[in-house]
Design a protein around this nucleic acid. Structure first.
Length: 232
DNA sequence: GCATTAATTGGTC
DNA sequence: GACCAATTAATGC
């Protein structure tokens, strides 16, 4: 329950949890569960705070014009959710949905604002984090503009591999074909066809929603000229 | 078990 | 490469 004992060593708050100045702030932390498929941040809803994934996996989504949704980011244990809406505007411009049953930590907007205004070290880490996020977001723009569907699907798979790793030869994050398409910026049919193409080429293996990478080198080499696989 | 959702395939623009 | 339609497989209740 205490941040100090949390196993998410990558968590921003965890890193500062031994600072006595933050005692009051940490005491105001809330923790709650969300079920698979549940959206706990809704586009257009008023901003009420900042979330951290304690355990589980989450997708950040943005709804497009014709109801098509775009997965903006995939979130793992220890990562921040809802930071983009913090400080600016009153309403979320983005939604968050649990990919699997998850446990979240949350802080209210007020507590966070008060704390950041008095604690420079924490604020600095936040700033660094925002900077990295902006960087990632910028390279993503180029990626979508220049890569083919095949390359985007491969990139998505490699991204999941980097971030969520494999266990016993299978990626630990399972997405539906539609979710994979929403993440790679294409349609469900394309993601289906691309998966079977990559499978028949012996680059990956597929079993239902499970995907396993068989030839990491070849996959990487296909998108190497874009050099985007370096970002995480 | 039935009903909704997901995956697949083929075809058209 | 997107959109649509038809079929089948999987999954929820």
């Amino acid at each position: 329950m205490d941040c100090i004992n949390c196993s998410n060593t990558n968590c921003l708050i965890k890193k500062h949890s031994n600072n006595p100045e933050l005692e009051e702030f940490l005491a105001e932390k809330h923790r709650f569960k969300v079920a698979k498929g549940q959206s706990f941040i809704i586009e257009g809803a008023p901003v009420h705070g900042l979330f951290f994934v304690y355990k589980g996996k989450v997708k950040m989504v943005k709804t497009g014009i014709n109801g098509r949704e775009q997965i903006v980011r995939l979130v793992n244990n220890g990562e921040v959710v809802g930071h983009r809406s913090f400080g600016v505007g009153e309403y979320y411009q983005i939604g968050a949905v649990a990919i699997e049953d998850s446990i979240l930590c949350s802080f209210t907007k007020k507590m966070l604002r008060d704390t950041l205004q008095t604690n420079a070290k924490l604020t600095y880490d936040f700033m660094t984090f925002y900077s990295e996020e902006l960087n990632r977001s910028e390279t993503k723009v180029r990626k979508f503009a220049q890569m083919t569907v095949r390359e985007r699907i491969i990139d998505a798979i490699l991204y999941i591999h980097r971030k969520f790793k494999q266990s016993k030869g299978w990626l630990t994050l399972e997405l539906s074909r539609r979710e994979l398409a929403d993440f790679a910026g294409t349609t469900e049919e394309q993601s289906i066809r691309m998966l079977s193409a990559l499978k028949s080429e012996g680059l990956i293996k597929v079993d239902g929603r499970k995907i396993g990478i068989l030839d990491l080198k070849k996959l990487r080499s296909e998108i190497s000229e874009h050099n985007y696989y370096l970002d995480s």
